[in-house]
Design a binder for these strands. Structure first.
Length: 157
DNA sequence: GTTCTTACA
DNA sequence: TGTAAGGA
């Protein structure tokens, strides 16, 4: 498929898909006319990349742990280097911190909501349509004040 | 009409 | 990232 279709199927803009390629995250084939040609694996790959990026991983890490997803290559490379393990452990710790950070702020918001609007709106919100959202570790957990969001470290190369 | 590269806001 | 230019 060409870039347009991949864009539709992944929700990533064509611009972004070209950017991923520039960053070495995906490597599509080229048709004779120069058009990029993507395969089915790329769809999953792009989704994977989006998720990792959303989790806050810099592209250089992703490029490292995602050894080219073009061809039918194993996702868990036998070439896992010790240094890769270390970086992944680092990322894991970073994600844990971020999760705690998010939980703390989410709870702070819930408290604020209780304070200004009462139970009728607590726990609900945009995008939570229908899902049973129970943040009921409430009564027990120690309430903490909201924290300012720290600027995410971003890596261009 | 779709895609390509380069470059600027 | 979006968008415009100039081609294929």
């Amino acid at each position: 498929m060409r870039i347009g279709e991949l864009a539709e199927r992944t929700g990533a803009s064509r611009r972004l898909l070209r950017y991923y390629e520039e960053q070495g995250l995906i490597t599509p084939d080229r048709a004779l006319n120069g058009y990029r040609e993507y395969g089915e694996p790329h769809v999953y790959g792009v989704l994977q990349i989006k998720g990792l990026l959303d989790a806050g991983l810099p592209t250089r890490i992703i490029r490292q742990i995602l050894p080219c997803l073009d061809k039918p290559r194993s996702i868990y490379p036998p070439e896992v280097t010790p240094e890769m393990i270390v970086t992944l452990q680092h990322e894991q710790a970073r994600l844990s911190e971020r999760i705690e950070f998010l939980i703390r702020n989410r709870d702070a918001i819930a408290d604020y909501l209780h304070m200004v609007a009462g139970d009728k709106v607590a726990g609900a919100g945009p995008g939570s349509g229908g899902r049973p959202q129970h943040y009921e570790s409430h009564s027990r957990r120690r309430r903490l004040p909201a924290l300012p969001l720290r600027r995410r470290d971003r890596c261009t190369t």
